[in-house]
């Protein structure tokens, strides 16, 4: 039982890291640029397709993943220049409509180019085994790799934001965009950089998910909704909030799915417990969001805005 619990903890952690990679970009773009980017899920999908295609071409997953970065960056750059830039000072609704249009555009474009059949990609040989954690317990190496990559990204981001000059500007821009502009910082260039970096995280998440899940049209949308939940729980614009939000959501979702039906079985008959458990566990993340919003409407780690 304790082993199962530990395994589920790891599963939750892995899902959380995954969500973090997507939420990090979303929260940066939202917090700093004040842009709601629904097309973030499309960048996730582009990352996954790029890795699948490039892996097929080069024969190596790692090379494919590496080469996918410039592809995703190029897409992000074009999106930022053509679509996002004119929308900076527009209403959120305009941004939502424009980026929602992008979702439709990319979904349709991908299904025209690649068809409806999901692409196939296997876990690379080097990461395909399982790690022996205790004598009786193994865990897939690939999932451990995802946790490691997530932690690495978190560390790098923390370093950039807390320790570098660019990071200082990002923090300043999130709290008081007017002031930083008045101080002569090239906000346009910073905006573009942040958008591309956020896109790269989404692309990386997509690329990493390609061997685990099916590479198909619209694969980013479910994750996008969960990521919004993560950043709302964590506090919009805060990387620390995104990380904690993502981990919370990952753990609550996984542990809920794993144990809620069993826990309910203590009080209810098995059939009802199963039904209620399944319904509750799929709601658990959203219930959590509601609870957080009731008590801390700005999220757990809000960025304090200048008035």
């Amino acid at each position: 039982m304790s082993q199962l619990f530990f395994e589920q903890l790891l599963n939750g952690l892995q899902l959380g890291m995954f969500l973090f990679l997507v939420s990090a970009g979303l929260t940066l773009v939202f917090g700093f640029m004040n842009i709601i980017n629904l097309a973030h899920g499309s960048l996730f999908m582009i990352g996954a397709y790029a890795v699948a295609v490039l892996t097929d071409l080069t024969g190596s997953f790692f090379l494919g993943l590496l080469l996918s970065f410039p592809v995703v960056a190029a897409f992000a750059l074009v999106i930022e220049l053509l679509i996002i830039r004119p929308l900076y000072h527009r209403d959120h609704l305009d941004q939502v409509l424009a980026t929602f249009g992008l979702i439709l555009f990319f979904n349709e474009a991908v299904s025209i180019v690649f068809g409806r059949t999901p692409l196939f990609l296997n876990v690379p040989e080097a990461l395909s085994g399982a790690v022996q954690i205790t004598e009786t317990f193994t865990y897939p190496l690939y999932r451990i790799t995802i946790i490691a990559v997530g932690l690495m990204v978190a560390a790098v981001l923390w370093f950039i934001i807390v320790k570098t000059r660019t990071g200082m500007r990002i923090r300043a821009g999130t709290t008081n965009p007017e002031m930083i502009r008045a101080l002569g910082v090239n906000i346009q260039a910073l905006n573009t950089t942040i958008f591309v970096v956020g896109a790269l995280f989404a692309g990386l998440a997509g690329g990493l998910s390609a061997p685990l899940t099916s590479v198909e049209v619209g694969m980013g949308e479910n994750l996008l909704i969960l990521s919004f939940v993560c950043i709302v729980i964590g506090g919009i614009g805060s990387i620390r909030g995104a990380l904690l939000g993502a981990l919370t959501v990952g753990l609550v979702d996984t542990l809920g799915r794993a144990f809620l039906p069993d826990i309910l079985e203590q009080f209810l008959d098995p059939a009802t417990a199963n039904g209620v458990g399944a319904a509750l566990s799929s709601m658990s993340v959203y219930l959590l969001m509601i609870i957080v919003l009731v008590f801390k409407p700005t999220g757990l780690f809000p960025v304090i805005k200048a008035v």
Partner: peptide
């Protein structure tokens, strides 16, 4: 055991762990 998952779920690690156990 019978388990109901979410419609559109992408990650099945939790369910697979339960099956193994």
């Amino acid at each position: 055991e019978e388990t109901y998952t979410q419609l559109g779920q992408t990650d099945y690690a939790a369910e697979i762990a339960k099956i193994r156990a």
